[in-house]
Design a protein around this nucleic acid. Sequence first.
DNA 1: TGTTAATTGATAATGATTATCAATATCAAT
DNA 2: ATTGATATTGATAATCATTATCAATTAACA
Lengths: 146, 146
Amino acid sequence: MSQDTGQQRLRIWKRILREHDLRLTPARKAVMEILTGCDRPLTAQEIHDRARDHRHSLGIASVYRTLDTLSDLDLIQRIHHLQGCEAYGPALTGHKHFLICTECERMVAFPGWDELDDYFKAEGEKRGYQVKDHWLQLFGVCPECQ
Amino acid sequence: MSQDTGQQRLRIWKRILREHDLRLTPARKAVMEILTGCDRPLTAQEIHDRARDHRHSLGIASVYRTLDTLSDLDLIQRIHHLQGCEAYGPALTGHKHFLICTECERMVAFPGWDELDDYFKAEGEKRGYQVKDHWLQLFGVCPECQ
DNA sequence: TGTTAATTGATAATGATTATCAATATCAAT
DNA sequence: ATTGATATTGATAATCATTATCAATTAACA
């Protein structure tokens, strides 16, 4: 029987907040519930809207603040679209990247590749750069949208 | 003797504009001169500032319009930073990506890898996705900033 | 249950981008 | 070169996203 991974992640996030002496407030819980359960990038505004559907009185400023907090804790990461605007999704543990549907924005993760890192590092060194990080996103069409 | 590739690129861009029945105006020339000669991502505001240093009366709206135009023609591409905001840089011909210095933002291009495409496509197919595009940026520290 | 400091929501302030529109300038035709 | 049709411009207003401010609230702990 498959556990809901969103629930699991939520529990972990709450523990990490406590470990950092951050209070577990309704506003933070609402944002976290939405983010741990989502399968596509969400903007601050979208998170705000979704939270309001279930709870009242969640300020948009608190959404931004919670996003910053979760981002500092590396629990979420920014997602860039081809056409500009940004959104957030849960951060991936281990070396993983996102594949995002250009139609419905649904996203799935796929594993990185060790040889990839070596290649990136080598390409950087050729040019005198110390490669610290890379940003990789795949764009395509998901099964439902084909 | 090495030609200034910026100058070359500028000539090509002007030709492409004409081929698309787009007029060669001072505003567009100014934005293109700056972009073809730049070695780091520039925001619309930065382009506006630089243009004003050399020419007067370039409206910020025209900068945005020209960026859209050049983007539609695939002459420039958006650059995303790890921390949110966006900028533009000249688009790369062929299959190339950017390596950006996290200190000074200077960027260099490096070639893509055919096996990489195959890998991306395969990872997508495993999940039922048709992979159309990928977004890859490397971040590191350039020789001067080390 | 009371205390204290972190956190919140409402709102003002800021900053970036887009829309509007009359004035201007490009380019082709003459 | 001049002209005319129309794409383009700059200034500004409007919109939208994000950040700052601050008094009121509340989570966490004794």
